[in-house]
Amino acid sequence: MSTGNMNLTLKVWRQKNNNTKGALVDYKLAGISPDMSFLEMFDVLNEDLITKGEEPVVFDHDCREGICGMCSMFINGRPHGPKDLVTTCQLHMRSFKDGDTIVVEPWRAAAFPVVKDLTVDRSAFDRVIAAGGFISVNTGNAQDANSLPIPKMQADAAFEAAACIGCGACVATCKNASAMLFVSAKISQLALLPQGQPERYRRVQSMVAQMDAEGFGNCTNTGACEAECPKGISLENIARMNRDFASAKFVSEETI
């Protein structure tokens, strides 16, 4: 079925479930086309495995256009592989060479337990958002959208923070498995907008508390998260979160 002529050796993490130990397993693949996406290469592998009567590799993926944030492979030591600013699904085989050996592992963090093979549980992110990553406005409460002008620069900055797809590459790559880039992006988006002001200091406190409770590591400012983020979320968001957290804890009178 394949049309190309690349030969590859894959070392893929196989793990039955969260209660069993996993290991890297070797697979040989031939006839891979450079136009395939990385996940399409995995489709070929799985088709092979199914035909041979073996269990296919389980991995998360959905939109395959780089926006849903579901795909999550740690490829040759980097989340989403060797190219900057792309997700695994948008990585194409032309980024590899014939004869390459590619090691593929799941995101690794205590807060992201492995579910099976390359699939991990990222529900910790949802719980962090549920703790405060919103503006409390019930449907029907809104005023006219243009009654609140927002300086373009601020609106753009909020948008850039909001571009986060929640894939977890930041956690995966951080040597401390810290989630601060993800958390700070949401905090920043809302802190930059006038709509987000009423809950600004509550939000940063409750979201950080939840982040800590989930067992993520601490930020040591290596900058790896920013470098690996497929959406280019900036470290400045973490600085903003730190600033807001200090204001919330040491200046604001509201404690939660």
Partner: peptide, 11 residues
Amino acid sequence: QCVAQGVPLAR
């Protein structure tokens, strides 16, 4: 509604 929720629409 979306603007009130903090959806950063273009300006």
